[in-house]
Design a protein around this nucleic acid. Structure first.
Length: 801
DNA sequence: GGCCGGGGCATTTTT
DNA sequence: TGCCCCGGCC
């Protein structure tokens, strides 16, 4: 246990041991930032700090989880449970719920994710009869978000000349009115959006000194990861909590600040010293991740930025290969070259799929790359922008849960009031909504008594509304007495969701069923873990709290899979790969066109490129195309000027290609033309591929990261099962076949069969009832007792004995 | 109230 | 190229 200090280098150890006031750790890419943070916490625990007095804030659930795991490995697993470690949002959501009586919100308030917020903003824009071409919902949303992040309430907005004149100039003078209405609607609905959690926390601490004092007293040490990504609201929370004891320890890399569009303010880091003149700055400058060439190339690039904390990142790893720059005729060919490169490097150097990542600036670039991977039978995983909890079918089910917990939750009601279809259409919803706004009550109140609010609806509609209301009330009552697991099953069934999901047997439909099943499994797991931990009454609200702020799509199983990773550069932050392809290095794409006229934005794009390069451990390959399909049209493109920002002595331009490019040299014969550009030296077996392009089987040779994933973290604590038969991929072409069939028809089972369930483990069938989609099976599980399961939902494997 | 098709439109997205 | 929104039609 004392060993943790010996694993650190001098500057890392200095940072961990220093305990005399505010500390800022400037941690270069790959310099062991997480190690310092975890050691610091372990060190605090070792030196008498009780775990519940340590507050450690991260930006992702994943980061928090990973840190907990690492701390547990050097200290005591039991201890980490009591650490206050998590994302800003989840920690302060917890605190706000606890202090809800102070802020005028119900303790069961629910959370609007960005989609919910945007929908509400759209509704309001429509209600105000504004043109949504001028008042673009996305733009308004970010205006409101930025305001909240800067702690500008709508009252403050009214007084802020700068904001008002900006809105006037942008021809959107009524922005603040939208903000105000939006805010009122959220309060009426008993919901907060992500930004509101931080804003309300600040209001809580500002207006209730006793509450602030309490948490100040409790959190005797505050640590923040990725400090360069904090916004003003987050910064101020931290400052307030540390005001007295000054035990603040922040870690970050200004060179990797890439989230300003979400309100992150790099100045929090750059000016930390101004705020805490007594602070001690530690610089972690040794990069343990990459070769010297990669580090040097990245350094020479970032040196072009003006705003930064000067530091000299160095590597003592091998010198390594130069960063290759590869030109291609088109995006199509670029994808081809990358896939060829992967295959060649695997063959020549013995790499496996998971040693590669392909990084791009925009999600739209992934399609061509995907196709190329599929054609060449390269197994890959794509991190799309849609996470598990963003999927429609998941949001729909969760919306039911949200309304059960908080019937005022307007966006959730709108989501489910006519899903499954029950004849309550948009016209009716509009009427209800108008009435609610006019009377200043929540939508639910109007639904509950439409006559009272003089909603002009016909008898038939009134009856349908009544049915809906009764159903929801029934759910709420059952929520009082039914265990959560039973309740959620009841809800999915009685609402009709289960029914319509099973009608759809298309490939997408099956995937939706699996996702919903996955959600139900997650609830089972959540409940059983909480029970394991000793909690007795686990409520639906508890589960919602857990998942409302979980948008992670990570999964242990996925991470270990041997697959090439495709993702945006943003998504790659914090990750590392032996070989990284950075594709689409062209002006107007990377850097993005929208940043071209703004020096600060260009600097951020440059940092983004820096992040991309520093993901690579061994090889970094940059590619660009001279022609690219964008928005349905082919456009000519020029190589990104960022490439020239890198000192050319760290770059390798293969063949005769120099910047700027000579144009028109591409041969009509694809094979011939390509040769000139390939650096990996293998001629493509083009014919072999074309036969593949005809098979458009979507389930072939790739895995979508979010398909069939669960809440990830929870998974690991469940008793290990042989899950080999449960993969969602059915892949006959590359040899990943389901070793066992899932049983979901009653005919396939008989009483007495020994079965294996994903969650409950081994069991024996003791009863079968019903037919088709309603078939249920009662299974006596070895360790989980007797359960009645909807057969269509239960993924069972028959044990042949 | 629900479905289909044409027109307008396109960064990044830890929570 | 593909998604989203709206308007027209049943």
């Amino acid at each position: 246990m004392e060993d943790y200090l010996s694993e650190l280098n001098d500057s890392q150890r200095d940072a961990v041991l220093y305990d005399d006031g505010p500390s800022l750790v400037v941690a270069g890419a790959g310099s062991g930032k997480t190690r310092v943070l975890t050691c610091k916490i372990a060190h605090l625990l070792q030196n008498g700090y009780q775990p519940h007095t340590v507050l450690a804030l991260t930006f992702t659930n994943k980061a928090a989880r990973e840190m907990k795991r690492r701390i547990a490995s050097v200290t005591d697993k039991y201890i980490t449970r009591y650490l206050w470690m998590g994302t800003f949002h989840s920690i302060f959501y917890r605190i706000l719920r606890r202090e809800s009586d102070r802020i005028g919100f119900p303790s069961d308030f629910t959370i609007y994710d960005s989609t919910d917020s945007k929908n509400l903003i759209k509704t309001i824009i429509k209600e105000m009869q504004l043109d949504d071409k001028i008042y673009r919902p996305d733009m308004i949303q970010s205006r409101i978000s930025n305001a909240k992040n800067a702690l500008v309430t709508c009252n403050a907005y009214d007084r802020n000349q700068e904001l008002l004149s900006y809105d006037n100039l942008s021809k959107t003078p009524r922005t603040n009115e939208i903000y105000r209405r939006y805010q009122n609607r959220c309060v009426k609905a008993g919901v907060m959006d992500f930004d509101e959690i931080l804003l309300q926390t600040n209001i809580l601490f500002r207006d209730h000194p006793d509450v602030l004092a309490k948490y100040r007293e409790q959190f005797r040490y505050v640590l923040v990861d990725e400090y360069q990504d904090t916004n003003f609201a987050q910064h101020l929370i931290v400052v307030r909590l540390c005001e007295k004891h000054q035990h603040i320890f922040v870690v970050g890399d200004d060179a990797q600040s890439i989230y300003s569009f979400r309100g992150a303010n790099i100045d929090n880091m750059l000016r930390f010293k101004d705020h805490y003149p007594a602070c001690k700055i530690f610089k972690l400058e040794r990069n343990y991740r990459s070769t010297q060439n990669i580090v040097n190339a990245a350094n020479s690039l970032i040196a072009k930025n003006k705003e930064q904390i000067r530091k000299t990142i160095f590597s003592e790893n091998e010198k390594g290969s130069k960063v290759a720059v590869i030109s291609s005729y088109s995006d199509y060919e670029e994808a081809y070259l990358v896939s060829t490169g992967i295959i060649d490097m695997m063959r020549d150097k013995g790499y496996s799929y998971s040693d590669f990542a392909i990084l791009y600036r925009t999600n739209a670039q992934s399609r061509v790359l995907e196709e190329a991977m599929r054609k060449r039978l390269i197994k890959y995983r794509i991190y799309g922008s849609q996470s598990f909890y963003q999927r429609k079918e998941i949001k729909d089910v969760i919306a039911y849960f949200r309304v059960i917990v908080n019937p005022s939750d307007e966006e959730s009601i709108k989501r489910i009031i006519n899903y499954p279809a029950r004849g309550i259409g948009n016209t009716t919803i509009d009427k209800l909504q108008k009435a609610a706004v006019a009377a200043g009550v929540s939508l639910w109140e109007v639904i509950a008594s439409p006559l009272e609010y003089a909603v002009a609806i016909n008898k038939g509609t009134a009856a349908k509304l009544q049915d809906f209301r009764l159903m929801m009330e029934d759910f709420r009552e059952n929520n009082q007495r039914m265990p959560v697991v039973e309740l959620v099953e009841y809800v999915t069934k009685r609402s009709g969701i289960a029914g319509i999901l099973f009608q759809d047997t298309s490939v997408e439909g099956i995937s939706r069923q699996e996702n919903v099943q996955e959600l139900l499994n997650a609830i089972h797991e959540f409940v059983s873990i909480r029970q394991e931990e000793g909690s007795e009454n686990i409520s639906l609200a508890d589960f919602l709290t857990e998942i409302s702020l979980m948008t992670d799509q990570d999964n242990e199983k996925d991470e270990n899979a041997d697959l090439v990773t495709l993702m945006t550069v943003h998504a790659a932050k914090g990750l590392e790969f032996k070989n990284v392809f950075i594709v689409g290095m062209e002006n107007d794409l990377f850097p993005s066109q929208r940043s071209m006229d703004n020096p600060r934005a260009i600097e951020e794009e440059r940092r983004l490129f820096y992040v991309a390069i520093t993901r690579a451990k061994e090889n970094c390959i940059i590619t660009y195309a001279k022609n690219r399909y964008r928005n349905g049209k082919s456009n000519t493109a020029t190589p990104s000027f960022f490439i020239k920002d890198i000192d050319s002595k760290y770059l390798l331009f293969p063949s005769d290609i120099e910047l700027p490019l000579q144009s028109g040299s591409f041969s009509r014969n694809r094979n011939e033309g390509r040769k000139a550009y390939i650096t990996f030296g293998r001629n493509p077996a083009w014919d072999a591929e074309t036969s593949w392009s005809g098979t458009s089987d979507k389930n072939n040779s790739y895995e979508e990261s979010s398909a069939g994933t669960s809440t990830g973290a929870r998974r690991q604590s469940v008793a290990p099962l042989d899950t080999s038969g449960y993969t969602c991929i059915k892949n006959t072409k590359t040899g990943i076949t389901d070793p066992a069939e899932k049983v979901n028809t009653p005919e396939a089972l008989t009483v007495g069969d020994k079965v294996l369930h994903k969650l409950f483990g081994e069991g024996e069938v003791i009863e079968l009832e019903g037919t088709g989609g309603n078939a249920r099976v009662t299974i006596k599980f070895k360790n989980a007792g007797e359960k009645k399961l909807l057969l269509k939902f239960a993924k069972l494997i028959i044990r042949d004995e």
